[in-house]
Every structure is written in C-alpha cells, then in structure tokens.
C-alpha cells in the first residue's frame, strides 16, 4: 500500500485553477521530485498536501486513510506526520534560530524543553549553524535561514518531508552540505517530496520524477526515463534546457 496517494487532485486560488488532474502515489521511503518551469504549481502542490490550500476536488490518502482537509482532527494528525520547508523559509521573525526549531516540539508536541533543546542544537550544528543559535532571522543570510528552516522541519520528526527548493539560496559548498543531509535522511528511509532544480541530485536520489507544467503533471517516471527518454515534447524541451546549463 502506498504511504501517500494523490488522486485526481484539483486546487485553485479563488477562481483561478492552479492544479488539475494531479495523480501520484508514493511508497514509504520513496523520494518524489517535482520539476517544472516557474509558476507550474510545484509549491502549490506542497501547500495543498499540508492543508494550507484546501483542494476543490480529488483525494489524498495517507496510509490508506482518506484525508478530509475540511476536518480539524484529521488535519491535525496529518500535520503531525508531515513537515514542510517553505521556498521562502518563513522563519518566525520574533524568534531566534534556536527558538524557531524548539517552538513546535515543546509547545505543540509538548515534549520536555531540555531534551528538545539538546536535539535542536545538534540539528542546527549539523547544518553548520552551531554558532548562530541566538541569531534572529533578519540577522541571518538567506542560506542560513534556509538551513534553520530545514532543522526546524526535522525537529518535528516527520514521516513525510516536503522540501521546496531548499538549495536555491545556498552557495555551492553549502548546497553539497544540505544535499548530503538529505541523502542521509533518504538512507534512513524518510519519504520525501522535493522541488528542486539540482538535476544531478534529482537524478541520483529520486525514485520518481514528476514534470509539471501549467498545473498538470505532464509526465512522471523513473529519473532515467524522464531525463533520457522523455515521451512528451514539453518534457524534452524543459530537460534539454535545464541540462544544458
């Protein structure tokens, strides 16, 4: 049974449809990469999955159980198991790096503060921020904020992790560091949705690659197939452009 199954999902911002006919299933420990041009709906799909934008049609099943995005209780249990790293990081501006990481585990999951703090410090150190525990978001560079956001998501110990372009604001050295952490998580068997433009990385780690355009999944398959033998012209265009750089 797939861990997460999306069936014919549709979503809109107001009247404007942004996602249509999204069907996708993920086994436990799989990594699905979403690629596609800007504005194709990648971020929106992640927002729908974590319940920030209620879908207007279609179904999402988590471990075979249908998620009712209108129902508070199932929404809460869903968010208990999923975590997201936003494309714009979205750190809490009024909290230090450390507080950003500890707030949800202590206040939402009600875990003991001391234990959480130790864990948070380890996580932050792991992403290279061992000396920035007490820095506020506006005292951190974009790349540093992005890493805090990653640590914050990991501190929730999610079963499924949604990563939205987590390497976009990083310099090349850090890209590798962050990608290494993701590799490690993959090795530990965490299920992930990754939006990324790092094609080498996508190719190496993904179980499946979904190419999105205009709110649709144009093509989905193993990375080798999407990159080397795309069926659709749209995909071939995009892949050739992106690999050329």
């Amino acid at each position: 049974m797939p861990q997460l199954e999306i069936l014919d999902l549709k979503a809109a911002y107001g009247q404007e449809p942004v996602l249509e006919n999204i069907t996708l299933s993920v086994e436990k420990g799989e990594i699905v990469s979403l690629i596609g041009p800007s504005g194709s709906g990648k971020s929106t799909l992640l927002r729908v999955l974590i319940g920030l934008l209620p879908p207007i049609a279609g179904e999402v099943h988590l471990d075979g159980e249908r998620i009712d995005y209108g129902d508070k209780r199932t929404l809460r249990s869903l968010r208990d198991r999923l975590a997201i790293v936003f494309q714009q990081y979205n750190l809490f501006q009024n909290m230090t790096a450390l507080q950003n990481v500890t707030i949800a585990p202590t206040k939402v999951k009600k875990r003991p503060a001391r234990e959480v703090e130790e864990e948070a410090k380890t996580l932050l150190s792991k992403v290279g921020l061992g000396d920035k525990f007490d820095a506020y978001p506006d005292e951190l560079s974009g790349g540093q904020q992005q890493r805090v956001a990653i640590a914050r998501a990991l501190a929730l110990k999610p079963e499924v992790l949604l990563l939205d372009e987590v390497t976009s604001a990083l310099d090349p050295e850090l890209v590798n560091e962050v990608l290494d952490s993701i590799r490690l998580l993959a090795a530990e068997g965490m299920t992930m949705f990754i939006v990324s433009h790092e094609m080498g990385f996508v190719r190496e780690l993904s179980s499946k690659v979904a190419f999105m355009a205009d709110g649709h999944i144009v093509e989905i398959g193993a990375p080798a197939r999407i990159f080397d033998q795309p069926e659709k012209d749209r995909t071939r265009d995009f892949v050739s452009k992106i690999l050329r750089h």
Binding site: F86, Q88, K107
Partner: peptide
Amino acid sequence: RTQWDTAAAMNMNLIQTLRYV
C-alpha cells in the same frame, strides 16, 4: 500571511499561533 501559514503547518492552534508568533 506566511507566518500564519507556517504556524498552521506546524500544527499550532489559534491561541498558540497568536501567543507565540
């Protein structure tokens, strides 16, 4: 708005969101 969204995604309820964020 993203601060509200983020808090919601982390399962904070309305009171927690107001109080902490």
